[in-house]
């Protein structure tokens, strides 16, 4: 069946194709390296914006207190109050819409160069819920794949072919062009590292509190669960004081969220403080402190941050 192999490779058509393809690939390789290099340079020279916050969290922060989580971390914990009252530096490494896979990857990167004293991990209902988009969202970690080997095992969850795609130097910066440009334009930003990662929300709710049933079943993602377990374990091993928090909501819940129950259970088994504000009466009666039903606004963040500090200080 393969008897004609010798014959066919000798034919001009095939050799011509190989030469042309090789030349094209060489040209594409050259462009990829050159443009990828430019992206890398400008990615790291950002001074503000979303990508800057991620880069700062992974490569620069040396804060004593770090706040991890998704939007409910980023928009509810104001590091200013933590710094004032606890007399320690604080940075909010939370990022809107990111799953627990992201928090753990960032933790691994930080622990490889710096040992914080306190970590606050904010988790929300459905934190271990199976969702395809969670893996899309961690694409923001791709620029660190080559320089941070400790994060690779998590980025590889995206797809078995991620390693292959990452042979390109441009691919890690896919869809980031405008953000990188914007992050570089605001070079005159004098704000202290983007309010130390905190992102205030400014609207106020004006509606009666409603009731939400949390007991609806859903599939759990074992990768997310394992990352959470590893997060707890790594903090424990490094002797970092870890607080896991379920921050306030503006709704009355009935039933129990399966993810939250598992998260609580793991925290208790590892003797980690689990602080639950989800049914805090003060917040449930204060719609003016919320931007929406799951995020407090700037005024709410001030009160909540101070309540968190009270809780931490009472436990120390």
């Amino acid at each position: 069946m393969f008897g004609t192999l010798k014959e066919i490779v000798q034919k001009k058509g095939y050799l011509y194709l190989f030469i042309k393809l090789a030349a094209f690939l060489l040209l594409a390789f050259f462009f990829d390296r050159a443009i990828g290099g430019i992206f890398q340079k400008f990615y790291h020279s950002q001074t503000s914006g979303w990508e800057y916050r991620t880069k700062y969290s992974i490569e620069d922060t040396k804060a004593d207190i770090l706040i991890f989580g998704a939007s409910r971390a980023q928009q509810q914990y104001n590091p200013v109050y933590f710094e004032e009252r606890m007399q320690q530096t604080c940075y909010n490494v939370g990022r809107d819409g990111e799953p627990v896979l992201y928090y753990y990857a960032v933790l691994k990167a930080i622990l490889s160069r710096h040992l914080p004293k306190i970590i606050i991990l904010d988790i929300e209902n459905g934190v271990f819920k199976e969702s395809e988009s969670s893996y899309d969202r961690i694409s923001i970690l791709l620029p660190f794949y080559k320089s941070h080997p400790e994060m690779r095992s998590i980025i590889d969850f995206r797809s078995p072919y991620e390693k292959l795609k990452l042979q390109s130097n441009i691919y890690p910066y896919n869809s980031m062009l405008l953000k990188i440009v914007k992050g570089n334009i605001k070079s005159g930003n004098k704000e202290k590292v983007d309010m130390n990662g905190y992102l205030p929300l400014l609207r106020s709710l004006n509606e009666p509190v409603r009731t939400v049933d949390l007991s609806k079943p859903y599939n759990l993602d074992s990768n997310k669960l394992n990352c959470y377990k590893a997060f707890v374990n790594d903090c424990k091993t490094a002797n970092i004081k870890l607080y896991i928090v379920n921050s306030p909501y503006y709704f009355n819940s009935i039933g129990k969220d399966i993810s939250m129950e598992i998260a609580k259970d793991i925290a208790y088994k590892n003797s980690i403080d689990f602080i639950d504000f989800s049914k805090d009466d003060f917040f449930l009666k204060s719609p003016q402190l919320f931007d929406d039903t799951v995020h407090v606004n700037m005024a709410g963040a001030k009160i909540f941050s101070n309540k968190m500090i009270d809780s931490i200080q009472s436990k120390q």
């Binding site: 094209f24 040209l27 594409a28 462009f31 990829d32 443009i35 795609k165 390109s168 441009i170 691919y171 910066y173 896919n174 869809s175 062009l177």
Partner: peptide, 13 residues
């Protein structure tokens, strides 16, 4: 090559 690079920069994978 430019087309390939635009795909890598702006494509939704």
């Amino acid at each position: 090559c430019l087309l390939l690079i635009i795909i890598l920069i702006a494509g939704v994978f």
